[in-house]
Every structure is written in C-alpha cells, then in structure tokens.
Amino acid sequence: MDGVEIRRFTATDRDWLVAQHRDHYARAEGFDETFGVLVAQIIDDFIADHDSSREAGWIAWDGDQRLGCIFCVKLDGETAKLRLFLLTKGARGKGLGRRLLATCVDFARAQGYRRMKLWTHESHRAAGALYAKTGWTLTSSEPVVSFGQSLVEQHWEIGL
C-alpha cells in the first residue's frame, strides 16, 4: 500500500461511496435497501452543511482507483464521531485501515475534540479488532433489528 494516497473527500466521491457501502453490506450481510438510503442521506447532509474547520472525510486512492473512506463529523463541541469507515475487499489486511483510522483520529485531536465515538455492528469483527488495538473502548452492545437483519449494535469511544 506504499503508493496509496489519502485525499480529502469531495462531492465527486459521493456516488462511489454510496455504491460501495450499499453493495458491500448487501452482499456481505444481507442489508436491505434502507442501508444505502441512510448512507446517501449522511453524505448528502455532509456535502450540504458540514463545518470544514471541524469535519472532514477522506478517500484512499491507488492511482485512479478508490480503495476506502472514513469521516470525522461533529457530535458536539467536545466529541467527534467516526463515520462511514470502509475498505474495498482488495484493500483489506494491508494496513490501510489503520492509516485511515489514524488520519481521522489525528484530525479530530487537532481540531480540539476531547473524545471520539462510533457506531458499528458486532459482525464487523476486523474493524472491532482494529478499534481495540488502537485504544478504543467498547461502551455498549445490544441486539437490534436494522436494515432487515438481526444484528448486535456496538458503540465505541476513545479519549483524545
């Protein structure tokens, strides 16, 4: 992953990002169409009204190919939220996830946030392992039905 660049998200990345999330989670976990709708709404809201001084998204590129994404958004004055963290299948297991996560956390810290939170599902085991290895704490876990599936929702947090 030596030649991979991590660039800021732009509106031209929107359709790729929505399609990657929608298609990956439909295929891997059987998520229904409501997941793609949620991702599209999150991105559209970000494009329309984000605070560029405290919020950002990044896309990992290898030449002209996108490999992954991650976002830092404001939850409140002291808390950032990690969102939309995803790597394409071919980019997994090569350290790129750790690089994207560090980019996001370092940004949040530099913007003066005191902590960062995220929401995920227990089935995302590789991501959970990465969070645990990098100092995040699992703060809650509960069974839910979301996106047409029975899942275990997780909330993680890290002090900055």
Results as ranks from 00 to 15, higher is better:
46 F>Q: 01
79 T>E: 10
44 D>I: 08
73 V>G: 01
108 A>L: 06
73 V>D: 01
58 W>R: 03
62 D>W: 05
128 G>A: 10
61 W>F: 11
32 D>P: 07
37 V>M: 08
129 A>I: 07
45 D>E: 15
100 L>E: 00
93 G>N: 11
60 A>L: 04
76 D>W: 09
46 F>C: 08
41 Q>A: 15
130 L>P: 02
53 S>V: 11
76 D>H: 11
59 I>S: 00
115 R>C: 14
51 D>T: 09
124 H>W: 09
44 D>H: 13
45 D>S: 11
66 R>T: 04
49 D>N: 09
42 I>G: 02
74 K>Y: 01
108 A>D: 04
97 G>Y: 02
106 D>F: 05
126 A>H: 09
89 K>G: 11
36 G>C: 09
93 G>S: 13
82 L>K: 00
69 C>I: 02
43 I>D: 01
32 D>H: 10
100 L>M: 08
40 A>V: 10
83 R>W: 02
127 A>V: 11
81 K>L: 12
102 A>E: 10
107 F>A: 03
59 I>M: 05
110 A>S: 14
36 G>L: 07
91 A>R: 01
99 R>G: 03
32 D>R: 08
65 Q>C: 11
104 C>A: 14
93 G>V: 07
116 M>E: 04
57 G>F: 00
31 F>H: 07
122 E>H: 13
69 C>K: 00
91 A>P: 01
40 A>M: 05
30 G>F: 08
100 L>W: 01
67 L>W: 01
96 L>A: 06
118 L>M: 08
61 W>D: 03
56 A>P: 00
113 Y>V: 02
37 V>F: 13
59 I>C: 00
80 A>I: 01
63 G>Q: 15
42 I>D: 05
85 F>W: 10
126 A>M: 13
125 R>T: 15
53 S>D: 14
69 C>Q: 03
78 E>N: 15
55 E>H: 08
35 F>D: 03
125 R>Q: 15
122 E>L: 14
74 K>G: 10
81 K>A: 15
119 W>E: 12
30 G>S: 11
94 K>F: 03
50 H>K: 08
68 G>K: 02
68 G>Q: 03
102 A>Q: 13
42 I>W: 01
45 D>N: 11
94 K>V: 12
49 D>E: 12
119 W>L: 08
87 L>V: 12
127 A>T: 05
106 D>I: 05
73 V>Q: 04
127 A>E: 01
85 F>N: 00
90 G>P: 06
127 A>F: 01
92 R>H: 09
94 K>A: 07
59 I>P: 01
74 K>F: 02
115 R>K: 13
85 F>G: 03
114 R>N: 13
112 G>A: 10
35 F>W: 13
88 T>Q: 10
117 K>I: 11
110 A>L: 14
98 R>E: 14
65 Q>S: 12
52 S>D: 14
121 H>P: 02
73 V>T: 13
73 V>W: 00
48 A>L: 09
53 S>K: 14
122 E>D: 12
73 V>C: 04
73 V>N: 02
126 A>L: 15
124 H>D: 08
74 K>R: 13
44 D>C: 05
47 I>D: 02
90 G>V: 07
52 S>P: 15
31 F>S: 02
128 G>D: 11
48 A>R: 13
35 F>S: 03
36 G>Q: 05
116 M>I: 09
130 L>V: 06
91 A>Y: 00
112 G>N: 09
42 I>Y: 04
43 I>M: 06
37 V>D: 15
111 Q>T: 12
128 G>N: 10
107 F>S: 05
118 L>W: 04
